[in-house]
């Protein structure tokens, strides 16, 4: 299968390429060629592409340690996308909206968003600084000293539910309750950004919950 055709079918795959640090000029390369060129296992690539295309993981574990390190890089890259691209973009739209409309609800909405954004940043930092290094240590060797409890997938998903929950609130407030006159261009852009973010966050937690954590637990068990 040619990568260019896959992108035609689902442009969100561009986001995936970016998270894998693969350039968008994919020429006429097939998926396999591209994977070889970038040193990514085809199985891992296809597993994640399937998530983006809406089908689940077919239990094709185990992934190798090298795969897992790449998954972590992938997740880190998506953190940067949230931190430096998507959230600031949404923040800009909301600020503009607030400037265009004197309604006090929008001021509150901006406050709501800013608080939400800082919670998200905190969570991302936690993953970058605590969770991922832990996984990397786990993957690197069998050292058992100072072994931290692997934080459970529950702790993980609790965090995520929170992040996705407030995003839903934001969407519902704008779709159902806050009255804003006109400004459809700006509001549509804001909505599209919110939906894009929601989609990538969803894939992000799927990757953590169906690939990263199960594999981490496998490795832990292996090391006893």
């Amino acid at each position: 299968m040619k990568m260019a055709d896959l992108i035609d079918g689902n442009p969100y795959l561009l986001l995936m390429l970016q998270h894998f640090s693969i350039d968008f000029r994919v020429s006429d390369h097939t998926v396999l060629q591209l994977c070889n060129q970038y040193g990514i296992s085809e199985q891992l690539f296809i597993s994640i592409a399937n998530l983006y295309n809406g089908s689940g993981i077919r239990g094709e574990r185990p992934f190798t340690r090298k795969d897992m390190l790449q998954v972590i890089d992938f997740l880190k890259s998506s953190h940067d996308y949230y931190r430096f691209d998507k959230y600031p973009q949404i923040s800009d739209y909301i600020r503009q909206l607030q400037e265009n409309h004197p309604e006090k609800e929008l001021k509150l909405l901006e406050k709501f968003f800013n608080e939400y954004f800082s919670e998200v940043r905190e969570h991302l930092a936690y993953e970058d600084e605590v969770a991922f290094p832990y996984f990397i240590t786990l993957l690197g060797n069998g050292e058992q000293d100072n072994r931290r409890e692997i934080y459970s997938s529950k702790e993980y998903s609790d965090h995520h539910t929170d992040i996705e929950l407030k995003l839903k609130d934001l969407k519902n407030l704008l779709l159902k309750y806050i009255k804003i006159d006109n400004d459809l261009d700006l509001r549509r852009k804001l909505f599209m950004s919110l939906y894009e973010l929601e989609f990538d966050l969803y894939i992000h937690s799927l990757i953590e919950e169906t690939i990263l954590i199960p594999s981490g637990i496998d490795i832990e068990r292996e090391q006893g």
Binding site: K104, L108, L109, F112, E115, L165, K166, D169, L173, Y177
Partner: peptide, 17 residues
Amino acid sequence: KTGIRSQSGLTIYAISK
């Protein structure tokens, strides 16, 4: 009923309504 789960979201809801 409202589709709003967080407390701060509900505050905005309550003001809108």
